[in-house]
C-alpha cells in the first residue's frame, strides 16, 4: 500500500527532488493534456474569429515596422531576405519567447482554485502551459509558412536545425519563467516587469532590424546571446547556413543547467506558495 509522509523536510538531496519532479511530470501528463484541451476548447468556443487572434498581435507590430521601413522613416541595415518576412519571423519568435517567460506564472495563477484545494502534481501546470504554447506556436508557424511561399523563399538542409534550436530557446525562456514563478506568484511586480524587459530586450536583439554594420548597437548585439539564437533560427528557416555553433552549444548547456535548477526550486517552493495563496 502506498504511504505518504508529510513533514517539514529541511534535509533532502538534490537527486531525490529531481526524481520526484520527473515523476511529477510523468504522473501528471494526462491531467496537463486534459486541462490544455479544456482551455483551448473553451477559448475557441467563445470566439468567432478563433485562431485569427493568435497572429493578430504579431501582424500588427510587424506591419508598423514594415511601414516605418517602407516609407524610409528609419534607416535599417540590409537584410538577406525580404524585410517583411524578416520582421514577421522576428516578431513571431519574439512573442513566443515572451509567452514562454510568462507561461508558468500565468498557468499557476489561472489554476489557483485547484492548487489551493486539490493535491496534484504541480508539474502539470508547466506541461499544461507548454502544450497551450505549442498549439499557438503551430498556428504562428503556419503564418510564417504562408509568407515564405508568398516570397518564394527556398529552404536548404539547414532547416532541420530550426526545431531543435527553437525548442532549446523555448526551454531557456520557460526555465527562467519557472525560476521567477515563486517570486512572481507572491509579488505581482514580476508579471508587470517581464513584458517591459522583453520590450527593451527586443530592441537589443535583431528582431525587427538586422545587426548594424558598425556602432554601439553592433557591439551590444554581439554580446547578446539571443542575437545568435534569433539569427540562426531565421537563417535555418530561410535556407541560410548556421553560424557560431559553439555559442549555441554553450547556450544549450547553460539552458539545461537552468532548467534543472528551475524544476528543483519549483518542486520545493510549490507547497510554500500554496500556503501563501490560501492563507
Amino acid at each position: 500500500m502506498e504511504t505518504r509522509i508529510y513533514q517539514s523536510t529541511k534535509n533532502y538531496t538534490i537527486a531525490t527532488v529531481l526524481k520526484e519532479s520527473a515523476n511529477g511530470f510523468k504522473e501528471s501528463f494526462y491531467l496537463a493534456k486534459q486541462l490544455a484541451k479544456r482551455d483551448i476548447n473553451a477559448q475557441y468556443r467563445q470566439s468567432v474569429l478563433g485562431v485569427f487572434w493568435a497572429f493578430v498581435p504579431v501582424l500588427m507590430s510587424a506591419s508598423v515596422w514594415i511601414f516605418l521601413n517602407g516609407t524610409g522613416t528609419i534607416r535599417m541595415a540590409e537584410t538577406n531576405i525580404p524585410y517583411p518576412l524578416f520582421v514577421v519571423i522576428g516578431t513571431t519568435l519574439w512573442s513566443v519567447f515572451g509567452d514562454c517567460l510568462l507561461m508558468t506564472i500565468s498557468s499557476v495563477n489561472a489554476n489557483k482554485s485547484i492548487i489551493t484545494k486539490i493535491n496534484f502534481q504541480k508539474e502539470a501546470l508547466i506541461t499544461l502551459g507548454f502544450i497551450k504554447l505549442s498549439f499557438n506556436l503551430l498556428i504562428k508557424l503556419g503564418l510564417i509558412l504562408v509568407l515564405m511561399l508568398f516570397y518564394k523563399v527556398s529552404i536548404s538542409a539547414s532547416v532541420i536545425w530550426f526545431l531543435p534550436i527553437l525548442l532549446m530557446a523555448m526551454l531557456a525562456f520557460i526555465s527562467v519563467g519557472v525560476l521567477l514563478t515563486p517570486i512572481g506568484i507572491l509579488y505581482h511586480d514580476v508579471n508587470r516587469l517581464i513584458p517591459v524587459l522583453m520590450q527593451v530586450m527586443m530592441y537589443l536583439t535583431p528582431v525587427v532590424y538586422n545587426v548594424p554594420k558598425d556602432g554601439l548597437m553592433k557591439t551590444i548585439m554581439q554580446y547578446n546571446p539571443l542575437t545568435y539564437i534569433l539569427n540562426n533560427l531565421r537563417n535555418s528557416l530561410t535556407g541560410y547556413d548556421m553560424q557560431h555553433t559553439m555559442i549555441l552549444l554553450g547556450f544549450t548547456i547553460i539552458t539545461l543547467f537552468i532548467f534543472l535548477l528551475a524544476i528543483l526550486i519549483y518542486r520545493i517552493s510549490m507547497p510554500i506558495i500554496t500556503e501563501r495563496m490560501s492563507a
Binding site: 502506498e2 504511504t3 505518504r4 509522509i5 513533514q7 517539514s8 507547497p271 510554500i272 490560501s278
Partner: peptide, 14 residues
C-alpha cells in the same frame, strides 16, 4: 498534502 506542517509528521497509508 497541500501544505506542509511546520513541525510534526503526518503519515497516510493507501
Amino acid at each position: 498534502g497541500l501544505i506542509k506542517p511546520d513541525a510534526g509528521k503526518i503519515t497516510m497509508h493507501g
